[in-house]
């Protein structure tokens, strides 16, 4: 079956209804297995079991960025093909992406607490994630500010693409700013060297998060389609009534 078949909202609904329980079930199983692996994984020689928050922190960071990627592709679909399902995808992904970003921020802050002695330092990575979170919130506000969904979709699509171009620049700038000021703490979260014994649980958790994201996105898209149907029905009712 070609992907274009799901482009029709009605077809998408039947597809989503059929697929959702399976994806949700798979997400639960993989996350459970991942957590089992995490519990069994060795603690960090320095940080002990605290470092295990990484298994939630790192996948959320990946998902936070991936959600923006999904929205950017949807934005192209909105602007180039003017596809209603692309609008729905873009809108549904915003709160989910924002939620993963928030999880990333909170876990990062909790992880850093024993090390830094405070919940927050202006660490380059975490600060970039904070800026990403702000952009998610701005995007959500833009969606809420415009009542007509297709107009909102176009405005949001442009902001999403501008954001996609700007995010690497922001990240680079923040890192430069951070080295310029030589932060009080030299500890950096999620360093690039990961012990192989930790890699498997991390990847399993990432897969679980990805399945969770897919579940949430499909459910949110379904809700959004229903919301739009209600809106259309109400408009038709107003059109059909007298006056």
């Amino acid at each position: 079956m070609a992907i274009i078949n799901f482009a029709n909202p009605a077809r998408f609904l039947t597809f989503a209804d059929r697929v959702l329980p399976w994806v949700a079930g798979a997400a639960v199983l993989v996350l459970a297995y991942g957590l089992y692996l995490v519990v069994g994984a060795p603690g960090d020689y320095q940080q002990g079991d605290t470092a295990k928050i990484m298994f939630i922190h790192v996948p959320s960071a990946w998902l936070a960025m991936m959600a923006w990627g999904v929205m950017s592709m949807a934005a192209l679909g909105t602007l180039v093909w003017r596809h209603p399902l692309a609008d729905v995808t873009a809108k549904a992904a915003v709160p989910i992406g924002a939620a993963f970003t928030l999880i990333c921020l909170v876990t990062g802050s909790l992880w850093g607490r024993p090390m830094w002695g405070t919940y927050w330092v202006w660490d380059a990575r975490l600060t970039s994630v904070l800026v990403l979170f702000l952009m998610y919130l701005g995007l959500a506000a833009l969606w809420r500010a415009i009542e007509d969904p297709s107009r909102a979709a176009r405005a949001a699509a442009i902001l999403t693409l501008v954001g996609a171009v700007n995010l690497p620049i922001i990240k680079f700038s923040v890192e430069w700013w951070n080295t310029l000021h030589q932060p009080a703490s030299v500890l950096r979260l999620g360093g690039s060297t990961i012990h192989p014994a930790l890699l498997t649980p991390l990847l399993v958790m990432a897969a679980g998060f990805l399945l969770l994201f897919t579940t949430l996105l499909l459910a949110a898209m379904r809700n959004e389609i229903f919301r739009r149907r209600i809106r259309t029905l109400q408009m038709m009712k107003a059109l059909g009534a007298r006056g």
Partner: peptide, 28 residues
């Protein structure tokens, strides 16, 4: 409701507070 201004103020607040350390530096 949609189109209303609630929470935009708090988003503005969050953004301003986030911007200031970029200007004066991350010195805790």
């Amino acid at each position: 409701r949609i189109g209303g201004g609630a929470l935009i103020g708090v988003l503005f607040f969050l953004t301003v507070v986030t911007l200031i350390p970029f200007a004066i530096g991350p010195d805790l």
